[in-house]
C-alpha cells in the first residue's frame, strides 16, 4: 500500500479539484431546453407568481416527491463575450421587480433604496470591476463563494444572458 501513497495523493488532489470545478457551461444562447420549459409556463415580471410545476424542476424540501431527490445544480463557470450591450431601462425593471430579478431585495441600486444584505450597487460604475467578473458573479456566484447569499441566476435559468447584460448596463458596470 505504501508505494501507492504518493500517486494516490496526487490522484486524490486531481479528483477533488475536478469535482470542485464541477461543470463549465456556456451562456444561454440559441435553444435552451430548461429555459424554454420555464418561459413556456411563466413569464417573469408579470402579476403571476412562479407556478408550482416550474418549481418542481428544482430541488425541493419534500423528500417524498421526486424533486426532493434532485441534486443541486452544478456550478457553472462562464465566459463573457463582449461588447456589453443592453437596455438600462429593461435592466432597471428586472432588478427592481420582485417577480423578476429582485436584486433590490438585497442591494441599494442606482436611484433606488433597497436591502442592506449585499453591498450597495448605487456607485458600482466607479469600482471599475471587469465585465467578466460581474457577469460570472450574477450568472453563478458560487464560482467565487459556494455559500454566497445570491440566487444562482444562470444555472437555474432565472435570467437569460441578455437579461443579465441589461442589469449590468443598468448598474453601470465599468471595466473591460
Amino acid at each position: 500500500m505504501r508505494q501507492f501513497a504518493k500517486p494516490l495523493l496526487a490522484v486524490a488532489a486531481i479528483c477533488t479539484a475536478a469535482a470542485a470545478q464541477a461543470q463549465t457551461a456556456g451562456s444561454i444562447s440559441g435553444g435552451d431546453e430548461m429555459l424554454d420549459r420555464i418561459r413556456a409556463k411563466w413569464q417573469p415580471g408579470g402579476a403571476e407568481m412562479i407556478p408550482q410545476d416550474v418549481l418542481t424542476m428544482f430541488p425541493c424540501h419534500d423528500e417524498e416527491l421526486p424533486c426532493g431527490k434532485i441534486p443541486p445544480p452544478p456550478v457553472e463557470r462562464v465566459t463573457f463575450d463582449g461588447p456589453l450591450q443592453g437596455d438600462a431601462k429593461r435592466g432597471e425593471a428586472i432588478a427592481t421587480n420582485v417577480r423578476y430579478g429582485n436584486c433590490i431585495a438585497c442591494h441599494i441600486l442606482p436611484g433606488h433604496e433597497g436591502g442592506t444584505i449585499g453591498p450597495s450597487l448605487s456607485e458600482y460604475s466607479k469600482r471599475g470591476m471587469p465585465l467578466e467578473y460581474t457577469y460570472q458573479r450574477i450568472w453563478d456566484v458560487r464560482a467565487f463563494n459556494p455559500y454566497a447569499f445570491m440566487p444562482v441566476y444562470g444555472p437555474n435559468r432565472v435570467l437569460t444572458d441578455q437579461e443579465i447584460r441589461d442589469v449590468m448596463v443598468f448598474i453601470g458596470t465599468g471595466g473591460k
Partner: peptide
C-alpha cells in the same frame, strides 16, 4: 437538515 438545504428557483 431541511432548514439548511438549498432548494427552489433561487437555490436558497
Amino acid at each position: 437538515d431541511l432548514f439548511f438545504k438549498r432548494t427552489g428557483h433561487f437555490h436558497f
